[in-house]
Amino acid sequence: MRETIATNARAAAWRFVLQRGSAAVLALCVVVHVATMIYAVRHGLTADAIVARMHATAAWPTFYLVFVAAAAVHAPLGVRTVVDEWLGLRGRAVDAALVCFAFLLLGAGSYAVHVLAG
């Protein structure tokens, strides 16, 4: 019983750490991403121009992979809370589904980065 309390306490604490940590990373990524999108739209960049710029340096794929990874941690943890509080769903099945969601985001996002930025 004490073991369970301690395990649950650690799990809850680490979920919080991961959620806030990924949030901080995402805050920085979002600033860069929105600025980039506004720049691209303002300058009327074509598809080829965007892809060319993305391929030009290793910084872009690195940046977007970090972005994808942070989102893959942050979104499922956020959804977990909403599904618990507003749909009343919780437990191992829910957590398993959310892990799948995390891998879906990681996979689809990484693939998109690979296609876009090499």
């Binding site: 994808v68 959804v79 689809a108 996002g109 693939y111």
Partner: peptide, 18 residues
Amino acid sequence: IGLALFLPIHFVVLAQAI
């Protein structure tokens, strides 16, 4: 909630289009 729903679509559409 909106962003969580949008994100997978964003990744898939982007990859397909590029």
